[in-house]
Amino acid sequence: MKTEEFAGLVHKVVPSRDFMSVDAGECTGCADCVIVCPVFLWKVREGRAVLAADYRERCLECGACWQVCSSGAIRFDFPDSGTGIVVRYG
């Protein structure tokens, strides 16, 4: 059993609008966001952080990537009213 296998065990109302992004011009490619995200939404390609295309379906809205980003390249907001993660057993 690997705990990674549970990372998809979430309940969501998938947001219809974007709530996160990365400014490639600001990103230094440090990969702090890649390490900290427990649902593996970030990758570094050609020295820049890239957000998974399906992040709206998987993001837990913790904001850790935004919090660790020392260059300020990551923009994070909460998804629109009534959408996003639904924690049943928090």
Binding site: F6, A7, G8, L9, V10, H11, P38, V39, L60, C62, G63, A64, Q67, V87, R88, Y89, G90
Partner: peptide, 9 residues
């Protein structure tokens, strides 16, 4: 039985 994966800051 695992029901949910969670995280928070």
């Amino acid at each position: 039985v695992a029901r949910e994966f969670q995280n928070h800051m």
